[in-house]
C-alpha cells in the first residue's frame, strides 16, 4: 500500500517529511489538509486521525504516526536501505541526532512561531520569538563553523547528512518570512546550500533550489 501523508503545503513540519520522502525516493500520496483558512486539522473528522489535531500524519500500512520528528525517525529506519539517514549503531551519533531534533523543537516555538505570526496572524509575542530564534541561530552558526573547522559538513559527526539536518533545515531556511534574517550567520547559509545540493532535494513554496539562491 502506498504511504499517505496528511499534509499542508506551507507547513514547515510537513515539508520535513516531504523532503525526506523525496531524498529516500519513497512513493507516496499527499492528502491535503485545509490548515489555512479552513482549520481542517482541528475538525472532528481529522481528530479521528490525530487526536492532537496537528499535521503532519503519516500512514504506512498499519503504522499511523503523528509528529514530524517521529515520522522522520520511522521513515529513515523503515525505508532507507543504506541506514545513513538514521544510523543506530553509534551511541554518540544517536545522542547527537537526539540533541539536534530537540533543537528543531525549539525552532518551532521561535523562528516558526514568528513566521506563523507574520503569515497567518497567530497572536503571540513576535519580538520575543525573533529574539529566541536569533539566540538559537547563534548556537547553530557557531556549531556549524566548528564542524567546518573539523572537516565536517553536517550537524552530526557522520560524513553524510542525517535526519537531524532534515529536522532543523525547514524552520531555518524559512526564517526570513518571520522577519528573522540570516545575514549574520554565514556558516548557516553555507550549510543551507549544502542541504540544497543533496541529490533528491525537494523545494517548497518559499524555498528555492540552488539555481535561484
Amino acid at each position: 500500500m502506498t504511504i499517505e501523508l496528511y499534509d499542508y503545503v506551507l507547513s514547515a513540519n510537513c515539508y520535513k517529511v516531504r523532503l525526506l520522502l523525496s531524498l529516500l525516493e519513497v512513493d507516496h500520496e499527499l492528502r491535503t489538509v485545509d490548515f489555512h483558512p479552513a482549520r481542517e486539522h482541528r475538525s472532528e473528522a481529522f481528530r479521528r486521525i490525530n487526536p492532537m489535531g496537528h499535521i503532519p500524519v503519516l500512514v504506512d500500512d498499519d503504522v499511523v504516526l503523528r509528529d514530524a520528528h517521529a515520522i522522520l525517525v520511522y521513515l529513515a529506519a523503515a525505508h532507507d536501505p543504506t541506514g545513513r539517514w538514521y544510523p543506530t549503531t553509534d551511541a554518540r551519533v544517536l545522542g547527537e541526532m537526539g540533541q539536534w531534533v530537540s533543537f528543531a523543537e525549539a525552532l518551532m516555538s521561535s523562528a516558526s512561531a514568528a513566521r506563523l505570526h507574520v503569515n497567518l496572524g497567530y497572536d503571540l509575542d513576535v519580538e520575543a520569538a525573533r529574539r529566541d530564534a536569533h539566540a538559537l541561530f547563534r548556537v547553530l552558526d557557531d556549531h556549524l563553523w566548528f564542524q567546518e573547522k573539523a572537516g565536517r559538513t553536517w550537524l552530526c559527526s557522520p560524513e553524510h547528512p542525517t535526519i537531524a539536518d532534515i529536522a532543523v533545515f525547514p524552520d531555518v531556511v524559512l526564517s526570513e518570512e518571520g522577519g528573522v534574517s540570516r545575514l549574520e550567520y554565514p556558516a548557516i547559509r553555507r550549510w543551507c546550500d549544502r542541504v540544497k545540493a543533496v541529490p533528491g532535494f525537494d523545494v517548497m513554496p518559499g524555498v528555492f533550489g540552488l539555481g535561484m539562491s
Binding site: 503545503v9 483558512p37 479552513a38 481542517e40 518570512e177 517548497m204 513554496p205 518559499g206 528555492f208
Partner: peptide, 16 residues
C-alpha cells in the same frame, strides 16, 4: 482544499 493548495503554492513561491 486542492484548489487552495494550488493557489497557496503559487503565492508561497512569490512571497520571498
Amino acid at each position: 482544499a486542492d484548489i487552495r493548495r494550488f493557489q497557496l503554492t503559487i503565492f508561497g513561491q512569490d512571497k520571498p
